[in-house]
């Protein structure tokens, strides 16, 4: 069952602009990620097996691999192209040298939908 986890409460200072409702988490198969085409940018949203949600920029800073196609485990995604690993909590690369991923706050709305806050 879906649990609302502490890191996924709505940010206290949520701004209405830049917050998007992405629909129910079940759109993303459990343990996987999907890319969302939002105005101005694409965002990868991860639906970890423990129920946690994460959101990062959609493509790998290395050579543009689609991170939503990566293997997700715990709070880590592995880029499908060359195996760069990122910590989904802060976007930090875990092997080798690569730029940090942009991450976005993500939480469940009271109606149970996935919400993501983009930078405005």
């Amino acid at each position: 069952m879906m649990r609302v986890l502490p890191n996924q409460r709505q940010p206290a200072a949520v701004r209405s602009e830049g917050a998007f409702n992405l629909g129910p988490p079940g759109q993303i198969p459990i343990g996987e990620a999907r890319e969302f085409d939002l105005p101005g940018q694409r965002v990868a949203v991860y639906h970890a097996r423990d129920g946690r949600l994460y959101a990062t920029q959609a493509s790998c800073p290395h050579l543009g691999g689609k991170l939503a196609d990566g293997v997700v485990g715990g709070a880590v995604v592995i880029c499908p192209l060359h195996g760069y690993r990122y910590d989904l909590r802060d976007g930090r690369v875990l092997n080798g040298a690569c730029d940090r991923l942009r991450t976005f706050p993500v939480w469940l709305s009271t109606g149970g939908d996935v919400m993501v806050q983009l930078e405005v």
């Binding site: 209405s16 830049g18 409702n21 759109q27 969302f36 085409d37």
Partner: peptide, 14 residues
């Protein structure tokens, strides 16, 4: 691979 902005239905709105 990519869910278009419209896919989540009318809920996908600011």
């Amino acid at each position: 691979s990519t869910l278009p902005a419209g896919d989540a239905g009318e809920r996908l709105a600011a």
